[in-house]
Write a protein that binds this DNA or RNA. Structure first.
Lengths: 218, 218, 218, 218
DNA sequence: AATGAATGAGCGTTCATTCAT
DNA sequence: AATGAATGAACGCTCATTCAT
């Protein structure tokens, strides 16, 4: 039987094998994501993930070499979401900019969710730790370069250490409002933004930048 | 007959029961500590700990009800070491004070070592997470009250939010130089102290405090 | 292409999944049965049962939640076989009736075999003891009511205590010829029947009933 | 140092080594007995028995080669108590004699208590089963010979099978009032005695024997 | 003789992974 | 390509027994 006839029969609705496979892969990733988040990595079994995805146990291993690999796939495309976005410091009132940046970031983090299992994993998967470390280093660099620009324009504290500062910003953002076991009070994005601004800009610069902002709006 | 000879005959090797038991317990704790640190909590089995300590599996269970209990014993007297010390803000140059405080803290942390497995544990042992959470909340409170005092004396930024600030200080200290997966550069205690001071004190106050310090020294 | 050829090619060896699973389950049950009988319940481990059945340890747990459950499956449909049948006292010569009843019962018991482990189990599984106890109570009741009928028809000893008697019959039957550790001689069904009859009927009634039997046959 | 001096010092209160050892042995046996009865043989550990007896674990193994041996010692001197006493059939009213015999027996059984763990043990200790079997056979013989004597004196049913009968008596007594999982009603010694008498003696003989009894009393 | 800490084989059970269908 | 039954190593833990003191 020629190919053509086959196609004519089955074409519409039509899923090429690749696509169907991609769908299954997607289902597995989604299930892994859901289960890792709700029960933790260790307590989730490959069998569970498969059955939650509506496929057989063995199928899991057609798409992923093992449980760990699924996790890595999971992180792959969501990795950047775990990390704070690169702020742009000089376009308008930095505080306002930061606030919206932070709010967006935390909303995404909450959506991604996976951040709750990461500590468990990093502790026992050095490779994963490495992957994450690299990503963080990239973010760190981008924050650093942003700060450097601002510093070159004379906007920041003159004696500021760019590296330390960008590390501090990163750490603060990463340990922001969502982290569990926090110290009672929920951290507020507005206060956080204000704090970060104080670390970067002297008060008079901040006032200046804020005024510009208003002028631009007008 | 001199003491020395006596010792040579009957005393050495001589360990009263209790002491021998304590030695074994110690060996197990040490092995647990070493293995938890090197392989992570999960990947360490009770059998391994026992054999690393040079005792049989069953012996492990004479001293500890299970792996978790050994861990708790491990943490028990070291818990406060994981947490940053309470800074005193107004006695002299805050930056100098902070630097020595931080250095001491990180030295202790490095000694304790266990901090590397904590994230993994917190993730899967809610009780432990709770214990740690409480301790952190206490530290948070003490930082807050210190800041409040300083604020009442007009030493700090007037528009500073004490809660947010003490949270930030805590987070920064906890994620300090030692944390793995850091962003390339090692964080320096001096820079960190300087950053924290900037978050708390306006530059002129800081200068003032520093001067007082010098005067006192003279 | 005729069916026959098709069969020869694809069907043998062919076992639908279900059937294969059932076979394995069967093999496990059989192995459990054999090992329980030969070594006793306690001394038989799940691992042994599995390897005796030619499957891996884990396979055992696919089919049974644990050793006890396998046992219960073993008993499930055989329970009634452990217990004596309800005799019918007035249809013909009671002795003949009893003999065949007893013989059937003991043959079945021997087939079931499991009765040899029951005492051990009852001793340590209160739930099972309860199940068995209930079944015995039912049998006891049915024997009692049969005796009562006979008594009402004036066939039995007039001063007979129905309860005690039915208990005695039950106990005798249960501890019949097959029981281990017996006192040397094997108990004979004929003699047993004769003894039970003597406990129930006065000699003259027995003679009468026997005569009727003959008349009916004629 | 001569023996004499030793004695003078230690003599009163004086326990020769043997006696002290015997005391410990006794304590262990008692503890084993108590614990076996309350928790069952399997669930009782050697350590428990030792500590219940107030001695060290190791001491247990000085007196008994293992747990099983303690059990056997336990049975040794109590064995005959598990088994029904040999009735004497011709001295007076057999029913009265039997009743008191049975009552004594069951009281003793209750005291011995151990009968509750026996089934568990017999199932998995063939040697023990053998020991018990032998004892039972002895009792069986003695009952048989008693019945034989009575039969020779023409006191019993003439067509009675002595073997079967003595087996029946034994079984009934052994499964008497105390057995667990019984059929609701408690069995009464009086009724039991009456039943046994009916199995042995024709009514008129029984009446006769009872009359003699009265005459003897007068 | 007595101690009780130490032993380690072995239990029941789980689950990542394989493989016959 | 998909299935899911089967695998078996490894886990945490117990306890009868040994042995150094």
């Amino acid at each position: 039987m020629p190919d053509g006839e086959d196609k004519l029969v089955g074409e519409f609705p039509f899923f090429p094998k690749q696509e169907r496979a991609q769908q299954k892969r997607k289902a597995l990733i989604d299930s892994g994501y859901a289960l890792f988040n709700s029960k933790g990595y260790d307590l989730t079994t490959a069998k569970e993930i498969a059955s939650h995805a509506g496929v057989a146990t063995g199928t899991f291993y057609r798409y992923f070499s093992d449980k760990r690999q699924l996790l890595l796939s999971l992180l792959e495309d969501k990795l950047e979401n775990f990390l704070p976005p690169e702020p742009s410091w000089i376009a308008g009132d930095p505080e306002t900019v930061l606030i919206s940046l932070l709010e967006t970031h935390y909303k995404r983090l909450e959506e991604v969710g996976l951040h709750r299992v990461l500590p468990e994993l990093i502790a026992k998967d050095p490779e994963l730790a490495d992957v994450l470390g690299k990503a963080r280093r990239k973010i760190h660099e981008s924050i650093t370069s942003g700060l450097q620009q601002a510093q070159e324009q004379g906007l920041t504290w003159s004696d500021m250490d760019v590296d330390t500062l960008s590390w501090a910003i990163m750490v603060l953002v990463e340990n922001g409002p969502d982290k569990e076991n926090q110290c009672g009070r929920k951290i507020d994005c507005k206060e956080m933004a204000s704090l970060i601004c104080r670390m970067v800009f002297p008060p008079e610069v901040l006032k200046q930048l804020r005024k510009q902002e208003i002028e631009i709006q007008e």
